[in-house]
């Protein structure tokens, strides 16, 4: 076998199992071993997705859900970052806030769904609020942790070179905490979708979760599977976004750097 062919085989290998699974799935449904009501065939799922896209429902739901996720992440992420910075940077901030935040953090945010519905009904605010709570804590914890773990020696060096205040923050503290902050961002993005799925499934009048629950009522299993795949896709996109930020902001870090040729 030539080296060329070997390279293609190497590329193709990770796709082998998914393709085999898809073919087997299709075959199992076609042969009638599993009812298409229980598990529609890949072709049926594809057809349902096409139908949803053609009617515009797919993109409407996507837009609504993405907006909720983004807004919730924006509010929750900023709050987590701000609190993490305050508590990480100031002695009084830590004394005053950290133990409170740690207590609140121990409440599973999904346990608040009944309360949130009582407060906000089932409109936008409820979902955005839940996502915000879910995403705030990972970013808070990792920001705080990142700041506290900055190399004391580097701080001492920077101070002895005259850095203080905002310059010290911009040039040493923030970049030093960035790897940890981005770990928090990545974790938060995962929780963002998870929270939204649960919130939309329980109480919503539009969005992907609503699409899924509606389809369930009409026993449209194929649409349900489409929505599950949609969530998977969105999760993957969020993860890619986090990786993009890591490559961009942590290019100095050997672990995140793509091989770079130096002059």
């Amino acid at each position: 076998m030539s080296r060329h062919a070997a390279r293609y085989l190497d590329r193709a290998l990770p796709w082998l199992v998914p393709v085999v699974v898809l073919i087997a799935w299709q075959a199992v449904v076609e042969l009638g071993w599993v009812s298409s009501r229980t598990m529609p065939a890949p072709t049926a799922v594809g057809a349902a997705a096409w139908e949803l896209a053609r009617s515009g429902q797919l993109f409407d739901s996507l837009a609504v859900s993405t907006r909720r996720a983004a807004l919730g992440f924006l509010f929750g992420g900023s709050a987590g970052l701000a609190l993490g910075l305050i508590v990480g940077l100031s002695y009084w901030g830590e004394r005053l806030l950290d133990s409170t935040i740690q207590m609140v953090r121990n409440i599973p945010h999904l346990a608040m769904i009944p309360l949130v519905i009582l407060w906000f009904g089932i409109d936008e605010t409820a979902k955005v609020f839940l996502v915000a709570i879910g995403t705030a804590f990972p970013i808070y914890l990792n920001t705080f942790h990142g700041i506290r773990n900055i190399d004391r020696n580097l701080m001492e060096m920077a101070r002895s070179y005259g850095l203080s205040g905002t310059a010290l923050f911009r040039e040493v503290i923030l970049p030093g905490a960035m790897p940890s902050i981005l770990v928090g961002v990545r974790y938060s993005l995962g929780l963002m979708w998870l929270t939204l799925i649960v919130a939309e499934t329980i109480a919503a009048s539009d969005g992907i979760g609503y699409l899924a629950m509606n389809a369930r009522q009409f026993l449209q299993t194929d649409v349900v599977v489409v929505t599950i795949l949609l969530y998977a896709l969105l999760g993957k996109l969020a993860d890619e976004a986090a990786r993009f930020l890591e490559r961009r902001w942590l290019s100095w870090h050997p672990a995140y750097r793509k091989s770079e040729v130096m002059a």
Binding site: L154, A158, E171, V172, W252, H253
Partner: peptide, 15 residues
């Protein structure tokens, strides 16, 4: 004690 997130020339210019 170089700042790993700054290129060499920017490390020299710190402060």
């Amino acid at each position: 004690r170089l700042l790993p997130w700054k290129r060499v020339v920017d490390n020299v210019g710190i402060g």
